[in-house]
């Protein structure tokens, strides 16, 4: 009898040894309302963000629906071996990287130049109109843009092909031609976010002191020289930051865009990691194989992002965290 009491007392003491929990219990008593408020959000993150992370263990299992995450049998690295020895995987990986890199090297300079030009406009109504119109496509869904592309690029009635035919060329079937489809992805991505992408630069440009420009003007610098020697250098840190962020997301080539726009005729050039995971995993019921590819993407993506952030802090003096 007395030993039971002793054990309890010991347990109690062991519990109270941890000062954090002691303080936590006191804090919960004192600010119970704050904890109550946070509860739904905490539950959300646990159920829909952290539980799937735990569920990613099925990459090392043969997932069976009835057995769930825990009950399915372990198989070690079987799925990873299968993936890395499959030519499909390398095709998908190549597509993902190519599409991401094209978007980066074409999209980024376009946004920077567009921001620099906007910054040169002194007439408010003109600047405002250009911004209003070019920001709009950012808010359109990819399905709507699919409609835009269908009409604009249609081989028979599209604006682009009408222009091609009028200048003596042959109409091109942009949406189903593997030679052209990646260009469609890159250009439509630029079209959608050209305006919106300038916001981050315009914010940095607004912070440049006007006295710099005045001094340069007094010294006889031309407008172009002022852009090259004053404006551009002042947004270099932002450019570096954006580039590194994009590098961190290299393995996400724009899932929703590709998923809405692609079709079997262009799978060979457009199938990216995410679309492959969806088709194999969800549609093909190969949950474990697809989860393994997803986990590969998640881990590599995290490493890239952390490295990019470290590099941004080192070279641009500013990171994401």
């Amino acid at each position: 009898m007395s030993s039971v009491v002793e054990t309890r007392a010991q347990e109690g003491r062991r519990f109270s040894i941890t000062p954090f929990f002691q303080a936590l219990v006191r804090d919960i008593r004192r600010h119970s309302v704050l904890y109550l408020m946070a509860l739904p959000g905490i539950l959300y993150f646990l159920i829909f963000r952290y539980y799937p992370m735990y569920g990613a263990i099925i990459a090392f299992k043969d997932y069976r629906v009835l057995d769930g995450f825990n009950g399915s049998p372990w198989v070690g690295f079987k799925h990873f071996q299968a993936i890395f020895s499959s030519p499909f995987f390398y095709n998908v990986l190549t597509n993902t990287l190519l599409i991401s890199i094209y978007k980066l090297i074409f999209g980024l300079p376009v946004a920077v130049i567009f921001a620099l030009l906007l910054n040169e406009v002194r007439v408010a109504w003109f600047k405002r109109s250009v911004q209003t119109i070019t920001y709009l496509p950012h808010f359109l869904s990819w399905v709507v843009i699919f409609g835009v592309l269908l009409t604009t690029l249609s081989p028979s009635t599209g604006l682009v092909n009408k222009a091609i035919v009028a200048s003596g060329g042959q109409p091109i079937n942009f949406m189903t031609d593997p030679k052209w489809f990646r260009s469609v992805l890159v250009v439509s991505d630029i079209w959608k976010d050209l305006g919106w992408g300038t916001i981050i630069y315009l914010a940095a440009l607004a912070g440049i002191s006007p006295s710099l420009y005045e001094a340069a003007a007094v010294d006889g610098a031309t407008r172009f020289q002022r852009i090259v020697y004053i404006t551009l250098p002042s947004i270099v840190p932002v450019i570096v930051l954006v580039t590194l962020l994009r590098i961190g997301n290299l393995l996400s080539a724009g899932f929703e865009q590709v998923f809405v726009l692609y079709n079997p005729a262009v799978y060979s050039v457009a199938d990216i990691i995410d679309t492959w995971v969806y088709r194999q995993g969800i549609q093909g019921f190969q949950f474990s194989v697809a989860a393994a590819v997803g986990l590969f993407k998640g881990v590599v993506g995290t490493v890239l992002l952390v490295t990019a952030n470290w590099a941004a802090k080192k070279w641009a003096g500013t990171g994401i965290w």
Partner: peptide
């Protein structure tokens, strides 16, 4: 969670 996610398939299976 902005850095790492369980991925499409585990999330789908949870839902």
């Amino acid at each position: 969670t902005t850095l790492f996610s369980g991925g499409l398939v585990p999330t789908y299976l949870v839902v």
